[in-house]
Computed example of a mutant assay.
Amino acid sequence: MLVDNHNRRINYVRLAVTDRCNLRCNYCMPAEGINFAKSDKLFTIDELGRLSELLVSQGVDKIRITGGEPFVRKDLMVLFRKLASLKGLNEISVTTNATLIGPYIDELSELGIKNVNVSMDAINRETFEKITRRNQYDVVYENLIRLISEGFKVRINFIALEGQNTEDILPMLELTKHYDVSVRFLEEMPFNGGSKKFQTIKWDYKTILQHIKNQYPDFYKLESPDTSTSINYKIPGFKGSFGVIPSFSRTFCGSCNRLRISATGDVITCLYAKPSMNIRNIFRQEKSDQKVKQKILEAISNRAKTGFEAQQKYQGIFENSMTSIGG
C-alpha cells in the first residue's frame, strides 16, 4: 500500500501516454504548440504496462489514462488490453478530447472500460473552434453523444474561461436535462505553457455555482467520496448531474489520493509541484522492479500537504503546459 507523509493513501494514478495533442486549446498551450518530447523519451507501451502492473501490486486500484490526447498513440489499445487483465485494478478510465476515440469505442466497451472524461469547453460551435483553434466540433459532439448513448459513464470537463466561454455554462448544463451525463465545471489553472499569467481568477467555483443558481435555484448537493475533486449537484427533473472542481482554489488537497506520472516518466506528487524524479530512467537503467517500487515510495514520502504549500516551494511551476504535466 502507498501511504504518503501526511497519512493519505495513494490508490489513484493518472498515467500520461503522450504529451502530444491534435488540438491547440488556448488555455493549455501557445498556438504553435510546445517542445514535444522525442519518441525515445516517452515510455513504450510495454513499459507503461509493466509500470501499471507494479503500481497495482502497491495498492493502486484506479488508473486514468491521460495525455496530451491519449488516442494520438496508435498502440494505445494494447495498453488498455493489458490494464483490463490486471487483477486488483478496479477502475480504468481515460480523459480525451473525443476527436479520435470513435474507432475504439466498441473495443473499449468490450474490455469494460466505460469511464470516459471528455474535455469540451463549449457547446457553441464558434466558441469551441476559437478555444481549440481547430475545426473538430462535429466529430467531438458526435462521439460524445455516441458514448453517452452506448452506456459509457461520461463526464464532460468544461474549464470556465473569463471572456471566452462562460456564456456556454448554462447551455452546456442543458445536456444534463436530456442525457445521463455529468458536466463538471473547472476553475482555470495557469498551466498554459507560459502563454498567460494570473494570480487570481474571476470565475472560481463559487461564482460558477452562483451563476447556475440564478437560473436553477433548486439544485441540491449530492454525496461524493471523500477523495472526490468535484463537488456534485443535481437539478430536479434532469437526467444527469453537474459538479464544480476547485482546481485553482484547491479545497480538496486534504484528501488527495492521486499521483501523476507524465509521458516522459516524471513522477508528480502534486499538480502545483515540480517532478520528484524520473521513473523512466530508473526503468531503463536499473531494470529492477523492486528499485522502481522503492523510488515510487520515496516520491510519495515527501509530498506537500497542499497545493499552496507546493506552489510556494517551486518557482516557475506555471511555465509548464498541462499537456506535458499529464492532464
Score class of each variant (00 low, 15 high):
K239N: 15
K239I: 08
K239T: 05
K239D: 10
K239V: 09
K239L: 13
K239A: 15
G240Q: 11
G240F: 14
G240M: 13
G240L: 12
G240K: 15
S241A: 07
S241P: 04
F242Y: 11
F242W: 07
G243V: 09
G243R: 06
G243C: 08
G243K: 12
G243D: 06
G243A: 07
V244S: 04
V244I: 15
V244M: 07
V244E: 10
I245E: 01
I245C: 08
I245G: 06
I245D: 02
I245T: 12
I245Q: 04
I245N: 08
I245R: 11
P246R: 09
P246H: 12
P246A: 15
P246G: 11
P246N: 10
S247M: 10
F248K: 04
F248T: 05
F248L: 07
S249E: 04
S249I: 04
S249Q: 10
S249T: 14
R250D: 07
R250G: 00
T251E: 14
T251P: 00
T251Y: 13
F252Y: 14
F252W: 13
F252I: 01
F252P: 00
C253Y: 03
C253R: 02
C253M: 01
G254C: 09
G254D: 11
G254T: 04
G254Y: 01
G254W: 04
G254N: 14
G254P: 07
G254F: 06
S255D: 15
S255H: 13
S255C: 12
S255Y: 12
C256I: 10
C256S: 11
C256A: 14
C256W: 03
N257F: 08
N257I: 01
N257E: 05
N257R: 13
R258P: 07
R258V: 08
R258N: 09
R258C: 04
R258K: 15
L259M: 13
L259Q: 09
L259G: 04
L259S: 10
L259E: 06
R260A: 06
I261V: 15
S262K: 03
S262M: 02
S262F: 00
S262L: 07
A263G: 10
A263W: 10
A263F: 13
A263Y: 11
A263H: 11
T264Q: 13
T264M: 12
T264F: 02
T264A: 08
T264N: 15
G265Q: 09
G265Y: 03
G265L: 06
G265E: 07
G265A: 05
D266P: 05
D266E: 15
D266Y: 15
V267D: 02
V267R: 01
I268M: 14
I268V: 15
I268D: 05
T269R: 06
T269I: 09
T269Q: 11
T269M: 04
C270T: 05
C270P: 04
C270H: 06
C270F: 00
L271F: 03
L271H: 01
L271I: 00
L271D: 00
L271C: 03
L271G: 00
L271P: 00
Y272S: 07
Y272I: 00
Y272G: 00
Y272D: 01
Y272E: 08
Y272P: 00
A273E: 10
A273N: 11
A273M: 00
A273D: 15
A273G: 14
A273Y: 02
A273R: 03
K274C: 05
K274V: 08
K274D: 13
P275M: 03
P275V: 02
P275E: 08
P275T: 07
P275N: 06
S276V: 06
S276N: 11
S276K: 14
S276P: 00
M277E: 14
